[in-house]
Each structure stands twice: as structure tokens, then as C-alpha cells.
Amino acid sequence: MTFSVRLKGEQTAVAISSETPLLDDEGQVKAVRCPAAGCGALVDLINGRLDRHSMLGQECHTSGVPVVVGEG
């Protein structure tokens, strides 16, 4: 699986995961691993965006950013 994350004012980051994403009953991706270096948390996707989550006791900088998920 590959997915890309675009942070405000930055290029799109592409992450590749060997894990299968968590899917809902309709086959839509509902959770992925956070691509931020040092994070890797399993994060829910809400309306195509990473849900708020913490890294090292602070909110991860990828919280709320849009995610594009595809086969890869």
C-alpha cells in the first residue's frame, strides 16, 4: 500500500507500508499507519484526513492532514 500526505506549504510525502490498511464493510480505508518519522501510530481516517494523534506526548504534526491511499 502507498499513501501520500501533503502538509501545508510542503511537498507531498509518500509512504509505503507492507501492512494492509484497515477497511470498513464497504472497502473504504478507515485507518493507516502515520507516515511521520518516529511516529508510526495506527490512525483513523476521518473524511480523508488523519485523525488527531500524539507522538512523544505532543500532537503529531500530521494530525488533520489529507491522505491519499492507493494500491502499490
Rank of each mutant, 00 (worst) to 15 (best):
L7H: 12
D24V: 09
P35K: 09
Q58N: 08
C34R: 14
T62G: 02
V67Y: 02
G40I: 11
E71K: 14
N47P: 00
A13F: 13
E71P: 10
S4A: 09
G48N: 03
N47G: 00
P21F: 10
S4Q: 06
R33S: 03
G38T: 04
G70L: 07
I16N: 10
D51R: 04
G27E: 03
D25H: 01
G9N: 14
G38R: 10
G38H: 10
F3Y: 15
C34N: 05
T2C: 10
A37D: 12
S63E: 13
V69L: 06
Q28L: 05
M1P: 14
C60T: 04
S54E: 13
L22W: 11
A15Y: 15
L45I: 05
E26D: 11
L50D: 07
Q11K: 15
G72C: 03
V29K: 14
R52H: 08
S17W: 08
A13D: 13
V67L: 07
G40K: 09
A37M: 11
G64R: 02
V65T: 14
A15I: 06
G27K: 02
L7D: 05
Q11W: 04
N47W: 00
D24W: 12
C39I: 10
L56C: 07
D24H: 14
G27A: 04
N47S: 00
Q28W: 13
L23A: 05
V14C: 12
H53C: 12
I16V: 13
T62P: 00
G57S: 13
G70H: 06
L50Q: 00
S63L: 12
D24F: 11
V14G: 04
Q58W: 11
S17E: 12
V65S: 09
T62N: 12
V14N: 11
D25K: 07
T12C: 11
R52L: 12
H53V: 12
L50Y: 05
G64I: 08
